[in-house]
Write a protein that binds this DNA or RNA. Sequence first.
RNA 1: UGGGGUGUCGCCAAGCGGUAAGGCACAGGACUUUGACUCCUGUAUUCGCAGGUUCAAAUCCUGCCACCCCAGCCA
Length: 544
Amino acid sequence: MSEIQSRNFIEEIIENDLESGREDHVHTRFPPEPNGYLHIGHSKAIWINYGMAKKYKGEFNLRFDDTNPMKEDDEYIRSIQKDIEWMGCSPDRVLFASDYFDYMFECALLLIDKGLAYVCELDAEQMREYRGTLTQPGKESPYRNRSLEENKKLFLEMRDGKYADGEKTLRAKIDMASPNLNMRDPIIYRIMHETHYRAGDKWCVYPMYDFAHPLGDATEKITHSLCSLEFEDHRPLYDWVVDNCECDPKPHQYEFARLNLTRTIMSKRYLKRLVDEGVVSGWDDPRMPTLSGLRRRGYTPESIKDFCERIGVAKANSEVDVRLLEHCVREHLNAEAERRMAVLDPLKVTISNYEGSEMLQSENMPFGDNVTKRQVSFSNEIYIEKSDFMEEPPGKFFRLSPKREVRLKNAYIIKYEDCVKNEKGEVIEVICSLDPDSKSGGPTAGRKVKGTLHWVDAKTALPCEVREYDYLLNDGEGDFMDRMNENSMSVMNSFIERSAKKAQPGEKFQFMRNGYFVVDEDSDGEKLVFNKIVSLKDSFSRTL
RNA sequence: UGGGGUGUCGCCAAGCGGUAAGGCACAGGACUUUGACUCCUGUAUUCGCAGGUUCAAAUCCUGCCACCCCAGCCA
């Protein structure tokens, strides 16, 4: 956890508002459109809005900005709500923009009455021409100066279904010459003969984001509407709506930079493609950077919140190193995950001077107040990791080799005697002898050797499947769709010590030296399936 | 070419006129029956660039440069 607490610019704004009396409370919201699953990028926005409300003893709403019936669905409502709960950012209230449609319609009528909105009959293409360009001002619509009565009549007819989609729009009358394109008489209502997933067929006109959002904030008495940078240009329009619809009190919008992560595709469009084309198993595939994917991958909510806290809040576009996220989950899991021995890529070791078997004591955690112990079986036939043996090792190889004794963790010190090779000359079995005096915990176990190996008893170990993934979506090389297809997941058929047999889906372990793993929901009674969450740091492999 | 933003270590990020916090990453070292963890230590004479104001500037002024966003009847 970061130690030095400095205020970010939003906290500064809020504290100034509170001190000056401009606001007497803090009320924020997270306003997703229910058209996709939440991903790690959203967690930043959630954390900021939730965090500010909690820090200043205010309220936090979840509001679904469901003003476009074309794209929205109930499935997304459920997943979004579940993911927010999982993150531990439960909203004080769950609301829907679609519940405000009546109010928004009244506001539109008010604008018409004030001469600030008009019904326009330009089609999409004409609208584009009239809007002008970045450098040239727009032209006023020929329908801009209708009478109040006519506007009202037409708008009511729009609502009553008298016109086809796109035939007419309601526009705010602001300034076609504004250098800010958003102020060039933006459309605030469009005709859509579409069934809304919640409102059904009640409406055939729907408000646009720029109109609906400030009104939604105002009705909910949001004080600080915190969103991402791309909405900066919309703020003047936000304020225009709030002012002219006579909202009281007035909410205010502030913007921060959204999260980008190295080696991670965050675009909803691409993520949807992966799901739709069946490249991944779904939005919760452990390779996905969605919150549901990360959850299944074994990331903990605590680690994600810690990550959000550490990346800070600012306005500079940035790309955060995914290794910070990994650090956060390692730090949390180091304290939470029980240790188990598992061998991912097995090499058989036979102990020549040992017979039978015995149970040995092993600690579930390497530290803590109530270290519990488990029993692991040991026999003359064990597996170690292939990478833990080298016939001709380089100088700094501390693991098993013809010239190096090693300790089997929680067991004995063993010494190389011989090895068996296949026809290709690869070592397929190592014969060792053990030092009976070196048994862990025994009175004469004090002898030190440089290396300690993890192992499983070949006679009792459980076969398991371990899935390892590429970076959240890609490794930065080539087309990510291709790479996802080819090598974004590798599957190892491995062995884990018998003591893991009761492991439940979602349970996290550290497979000593191999990293952190979670039991996947695909596990059944027959075979345990593990997702690799993240590797341990390994200063040995880094020096190779 | 218009408007809105942003530029401080490889990546984030404090700093708000008094002489560059912190985290990640990295590099050394100590400890270790996880080469993990933990613990020390090191890492920007410099704040996009150039001028100016000042005893003093990353912080103020001027000019430039670079990058991001905006021309959906999406959010």
